[in-house]
């Protein structure tokens, strides 16, 4: 396994569509729930321990080779908002395109055939990590980090925040990222024996509710 592959996969410039998504930050900014750096930190922390943990566990389980179709169904059940399910599938499809060009693998081709309109992004991410020779920890790290880097980058654009402040928010979350990854991978390892119910199902009501409102806006900067 090449650890450098993790840098390629986790790079914010990896061309997999993430730049057009705010991870709920655009809706939270409009609602006045994010007005500055402190709110951003709180938002990211909440997202990390809910959607981020679930994504990390799904990615870890996919990287371990668990059935991606079952994992995709588990992701559906953990994503009540249809707007977020659609966003996750769009991102999954975009990541699939980038992954197949970067780390060609029969498993990726098979998943692309199974889900022509895209599987949930964390599932594709886990299989991509696998194709890149990475393990469940690396896959979970990517998913957990994306769950906070997306909103941080988006908020820099939305509120003209100082980019150093936004990056410092991410740096200060690092110990919690470690914890989330540990919890996610432990759950992912239990899937083989216990099935997908072993995966965490942590939810953030406002992320789900606001995603529906956001999807109905006629004019917006971000896709989600």
């Amino acid at each position: 396994m090449s650890r450098a592959a993790l840098l390629v996969l986790a790079d914010g410039r990896f061309p997999a569509g993430g730049h057009a998504h705010s991870g709920g930050a655009e809706a939270a900014v409009r609602a006045g729930r994010i007005t500055g750096v402190a709110d951003l930190a709180d938002f990211c922390r909440g997202r990390l321990h809910t959607a981020g943990l679930v994504a990390a566990a799904l990615a870890g389980a996919a990287a371990l080779g668990r059935d991606p179709v079952e994992l995709d169904a588990a992701a559906d059940a953990r994503t009540p908002s249809p707007a977020l399910r659609l966003a996750a599938r769009k991102l999954g499809r975009q990541l699939m395109r980038a992954a197949r060009a970067t780390w060609p693998a029969p498993e990726l081709d098979a998943l692309a055939r199974e889900f022509p309109k895209g599987a949930h992004q964390p599932v594709v991410l886990g299989l991509t990590a696998r194709a890149a020779g990475l393990g469940p920890e690396e896959a979970a790290y990517c998913a957990a980090y994306e769950s906070v880097s997306g909103p941080a980058t988006a908020t820099v654009r939305l509120l003209s925040l100082d980019p150093f402040d936004a990056t410092a928010v991410l740096a200060r979350l690092a110990p919690e990222l470690d914890q989330v990854v540990e919890r996610a991978v432990a759950a992912a390892r239990r899937v083989a024996a216990e099935g997908v119910d072993a995966l965490p199902a942590c939810s953030a009501p406002l992320l789900e509710i606001a995603a529906e409102a956001h999807a109905a806006w006629p004019v917006r900067l971000f896709a989600s």
Partner: peptide, 21 residues
């Protein structure tokens, strides 16, 4: 329409995945 996350040039140059879709 493709949504570009406030960076239209990214969507046509650096990360073209949404446009290809």
């Amino acid at each position: 329409a493709v949504e570009t996350g406030a960076c239209p040039h990214t969507a046509i140059r650096d990360d073209i995945s949404a446009n290809l879709e």
